[in-house]
Design a protein around this nucleic acid. Structure first.
Lengths: 161, 161
DNA sequence: TATTGTTATACTCTATAACTATA
DNA sequence: TATAGTTATAGAGTATAACAATA
């Protein structure tokens, strides 16, 4: 049931704070996007696919920092909803170029507006200055030198908190 | 393989930033704690169990915002490592009071020092002022009114980005 | 030989349902 | 009847290995 009692000595931990901030925001944005029939994950894929030049599945996967096998299911879902289409590349027939359909482009615009508002609402407890400072700090932390390729802590990091 | 190319239009998204900041930190803290034989998750459990008064499994689970069924495996792990022990409560024999062993208390102290250093290293790209501002902002965002109990977006929120 | 997409498989994390023993 | 712990099970997310088609 995961009842929220007092978080106790955990609110001082960076891991706990990042995890739960992400969980909170994911819930809020998922709820906001639900009427449009997509979640934040699918919206991110649509945004990447909206690039000026058509992307192959692997190129899209790389931009999303997602495995190519994961990409298969994502494109399957978007195609089933009529939001995107696979097109065999003429120059390299191994590749699927994934392009948005007209409904896909329309939905992308509408969903981005909803997402932007969800972000604003979520950050509302902070002042405008603190909100932009938060985004800047997170960008600095994630933009740092790529995570040591020789680490490989198994599947999903059990770092939890 | 999840190769890191250019994140493209994603670095402006709050969900992406929170998710990847958490992933980055989880990897770093897991790596730092590995020589001690625990991960950040187990360390958080130890910290909660170190409360002045012995906690039952459910009480500990509530403080960790974790399901009671998840708590079973966590306590199993700590007990297997000799870091904690289950003790049947005298006043309510349905309850397991979970207490740290002497090795558990020693490891907790050492691991907290390691975790603190891992946090400091992780936040190093930010100035001291920005780092404390980040923690304060995250606390404000996670401390806000409990996540609407009537939401229930299925299992794990698919909010991803 | 190497690469793209795909499938099958497995592992982690988490939650629900049902069981037991206690209350 | 209700609660604490447990077990079995199921789902989402993600990754690895192996295969077919193509380069």
């Amino acid at each position: 049931m995961t009842s929220d009692a007092s978080p106790g000595p955990l609110t001082g931990r960076l891991g706990y704070l990042l995890k739960h901030a992400h969980l909170r925001y994911a819930e809020a944005s998922t709820r906001a996007l639900a009427p449009l029939g997509v979640d934040g994950r699918e919206l991110a894929v649509l945004a990447v696919l909206a690039a000026d030049v058509p992307l192959s599945q692997q190129e899209a996967a790389a931009r999303l920092t997602v495995d190519r096998t994961t990409m298969v299911a994502l494109v399957d879902g978007l195609e089933a909803k009529g939001l995107a289409e696979r097109r065999r590349s003429d120059t390299d027939r191994r590749k699927n170029l994934v392009v948005l359909t007209a409904p896909g482009r329309r939905l992308l615009r509408a969903a981005e507006a909803v997402r932007t508002e969800a972000e604003r609402d979520f950050l509302a407890p902070l002042g405008a200055a603190d909100a932009t400072a938060l985004l800047r700090a997170l960008r600095a932390l994630t933009a740092e030198s790529a995570p040591d390729p020789g680490a490989d802590p198994g599947t999903g990091p059990g770092g939890g908190f």
